[in-house]
Computed example of a mutant assay.
Amino acid sequence: MRVAFKRAGLIMAMAASAFVAVPATAQAAATAASPAAVCGADGYSYSVVASAPVKFSSGTVAGTVYLMYSSGNGKNCVVTVKTSYTGSATFTTAQLMIQNGNSYVDQGNYTSYAGPVRGSAAGKCVKYWGTINTGPDGQAGINATGGRMSWGNCG
Rank of each mutant, 00 (worst) to 15 (best):
Q99A: 11
V126C: 04
S103K: 07
G87F: 08
G141S: 07
A122D: 13
T92R: 01
Y110Q: 08
Q99K: 14
A50V: 00
N133T: 12
F56P: 01
Y85T: 03
K82P: 03
N133R: 08
K75L: 13
G108N: 10
V65Q: 01
S71L: 03
G108C: 10
G141T: 10
D42E: 07
G123T: 00
A122K: 11
Y110W: 12
K55M: 12
T86K: 12
V49L: 08
S71Q: 13
V81L: 05
S120R: 11
S120N: 15
G40H: 09
G108K: 10
N76A: 02
G135H: 02
S45G: 03
R118V: 13
A140F: 02
I98M: 08
Y128A: 12
A50D: 14
S45H: 07
V81E: 01
A62E: 09
N73P: 12
G123Y: 12
T93E: 11
S103A: 14
Y85V: 00
V48S: 11
D42I: 06
T86N: 07
M97R: 07
F56I: 04
A121S: 12
G141L: 11
V117M: 04
Q95F: 02
Y85A: 09
T131S: 12
V117R: 02
G87P: 04
C39Y: 06
K127T: 08
A114Y: 04
Y110L: 06
Y113N: 11
A50T: 01
Q99S: 14
M97G: 00
Y69H: 15
Q95A: 11
Y44G: 00
G74W: 05
A121N: 01
G123K: 06
Y46D: 09
S47C: 00
